[in-house]
Amino acid sequence: MKRFEEVDRALCPVDPDTGEVLEPRAQPGYYAGFSTLAQRAFWDEATRKVVDKRVKDAPQRRYLSEQAWEFWSTVFAHLIPQTDRTPERQINLVAGLDHRLEVNETIGYRYEDMPHDRVVYAWGIDAINAEAKHRYGGEFMVLPYRQQDVVLKALHDGRPEAASDIWKKMSVHRFWQMIMGDAIEAYYAHPWAWDEIGFGGPAYPRAYTRLERGEPEPWEVEEQRYAWAAPSASVSDEVRSVSGHHTEAGQHSLLDKGGVR
């Protein structure tokens, strides 16, 4: 993973009013002082073990080649950028992917217009490199940050211009869904990310008591918002709501994944 020291300060978020770089924080987000890990003693032993392992175990590369590991680390650093975090508090995003591919664990299905997961990650490298070459005449890894962002945005938008042979065999939407899904599973499963977004974390045996009005538990903290803008070198900050007040059902065929209910 790219460490902060290696990263240009131009890649850090800025104060939108002054335009000044915001110093990286041990804990970005609006819940300064909140720590789920400080509550470990209140969790059951099984949960504590699982979360501890996530926080303490050094990332291990078993399945991906060194280049592939580097490649996906770089891509994931665009999917979920962490330059607002101090280096020792950045979360490894590819270790889980490596493990999953090694033991050949899937989410329990594959789309018929998608190859097997291991193949997805192999073809993904080729397709992204092809897009990079097509747009900027160089492999993805050698491009500057902004150009890398633009290459990935083309896939995000579902409009790649190169590697049509690969995209014929692999849906670009589903590809995007998969890599985003893996990045999210790594980042938002980490207690540091819970602290960032103010999620209470594990809650057994101790329960929640304040269920209504978004009130914090005694050990949670109130939100303290601050303004920040994405670094100018990035193009990933704009979000587009797919559904305003009215949308058609066509979106069904494109995006569905994960599970609640």
């Binding site: 999917l79 950028p81 962002d149 990935l152 994405a230 193009v235 990933s236 979000v239 709501s241 569905d256």
Partner: peptide, 9 residues
């Protein structure tokens, strides 16, 4: 990701 096409920052 699906509802807002959100990614990155």
């Amino acid at each position: 990701i699906a509802a807002k096409k959100a990614w990155g920052w």
